[in-house]
Amino acid sequence: MPLNSEEHIIEVADLCDKKWGMLNKRPMAFLISAFAGGAFVCFGAMLALSVSAGVSENLAPGLANLLMGLVFMFSLVIIMFSGMTLVTADMAYGLVGVFNNRISWKQFFLGVLVGYIGNFIGSMSFMWIMSKGGGYHALPWLMRAHDIGLAKTGETSMEIFVMGIICTWTLQSAAILFMKTNDDMSKIMLTAYGPLAFVAGMNEHCIANIGFLAVPLFQQDLWLEAVTGMNNITPVLMHWGFGKFGWAHNQLFTVMGNLIGGTLFVAVVFQLVADPLKLKEMYRTRRDQIVTDKTRKECG
């Protein structure tokens, strides 16, 4: 039986308390959990690259996207069940915490920053190791990784920004619904929906993109060597900076879009839908329960 809106908001605020409590008391543990979260996202990115190489667009233009989404979707499940940190999920949880006076605005932004740094290191590290793997040096995977990179970095800033908003709108709807039920199977289904939607929907996720774009950059020399001499291919190179085909160009506008989708369209919406008076009453009931428990303990 799913929780009602007010119980759900209290669960999310409690999770925010736990996460930001960890950041305050054990910052290194928080950073390590973000490192693991970043790597977990890239487990999905690796699988997505693996299954989508060589899929013909003539067969069905969206087929590769569907395959990528299907193998990517359990990334968020393993993050949520292991209690690791994903910055885009924390954007939504943290904002609910701010509305419920659990954390301040300053703490919210600090948590998002530290989460991003940890995710960045985890994502980059995993993808650097993966890029050295022999299987991904074969031509179909080199070509696919480069095609994904060019498609993502070749978009205009507005195209990336808008897809970034949609990404966390779908992903954080799933991440916040993870807290709505206590049944494991429902949690898995709800959580898997988020990555499926954003990957199959061709959206832009900052942590996934760190990995998706780093691989072709790490492997660019190999790719160039492989396509040199092919008559039908004019090599287009990617780079780490701003501007067309730049990693930083994609990352900046993806982060900006992600910072809006999961907050304005998920956290604020869920918070405002919950009845504030009922919410306050539930907090009072909980407070009374704590007082009763304390009194009982003191008496005997």
Partner: peptide, 11 residues
Amino acid sequence: NYDYNPLNPVI
């Protein structure tokens, strides 16, 4: 043209 400029004012 701000299509590939990090300071796109609209965004």
